[in-house]
């Protein structure tokens, strides 16, 4: 039997994901999304990845979702329907069941589960970067082994910045 906390947060996350997918109102969807992200952050905490959990809440639940909410309210595209489309929701559930069956089948067949209780696999055992809860461990890896990706990520952010500025300039009408 898994940890009760794990079960609780898993149920919370899945429920929030359901809210995200099924809600008619985009703002409600966004709330579901925030809840789901907080739930995932909680799972990170349970996995001892405290730094990532904090990052998840700060970046995703904080910054990204606020951006989403801004845009949703800016565009204000909701046209509330009179009746909830239950048939469509049922269709969605069918799709979900089909896809999750596929995904679970893949997980079961992938062989990843055989390694559950085992020690660190041999190809990783001499890795000096053992799992650590300290943020310092991240820093060390980021500035040694992952130096190039780190630089590229910085460049990517810069490009995204420039791109967004360019995209959101007022386009000339009919240009």
């Amino acid at each position: 039997m898994p940890d009760p906390l794990f079960v609780f947060f898993a149920a919370l996350t899945l429920g929030a994901a359901g809210l995200l997918v099924l809600s008619r109102n985009a703002v409600t969807s966004a709330m579901g999304m925030i809840l789901a992200l907080v739930g995932i952050a909680a799972e990170f905490f349970l996995l001892d990845a405290y730094f990532l959990g904090v990052l998840q809440i700060l970046v995703y639940a904080g910054a990204v979702m606020v951006l989403f909410l801004f845009i949703i309210m800016l565009l204000n595209t909701d046209k509330p329907e009179t009746k909830y489309p239950w048939m469509k929701a049922a269709g969605g559930l069918a799709v979900f069941l089909f896809l999750s069956a596929g995904v679970i089948a893949l997980i079961l067949h992938s062989g990843a589960l055989d390694k559950v209780a085992g020690p660190t696999p041999p190809e990783l055992s001499n890795n000096p970067a053992e799992f650590s809860t300290a943020a310092k461990a991240f820093g060390r890896l980021l500035y040694t082994k992952y130096m190039l990706p780190l630089q590229m990520a910085g460049l990517l952010l810069l490009l995204a910045l420039v791109g967004v500025v360019n995209l959101s300039k007022d386009a000339k009408p009919n240009a």
């Binding site: 799709v95 896809l99 596929g102 995904v103 089948a105 893949l106 067949h109 992938s110």
Partner: peptide, 18 residues
């Protein structure tokens, strides 16, 4: 998107040898 999902599942299944 639906076809894409089905295709991705199929390819993953093929790669895993299912």
């Amino acid at each position: 998107a639906a076809w894409f999902a089905i295709g991705a599942l199929l390819i993953a299944a093929l790669l895993l040898g299912i």
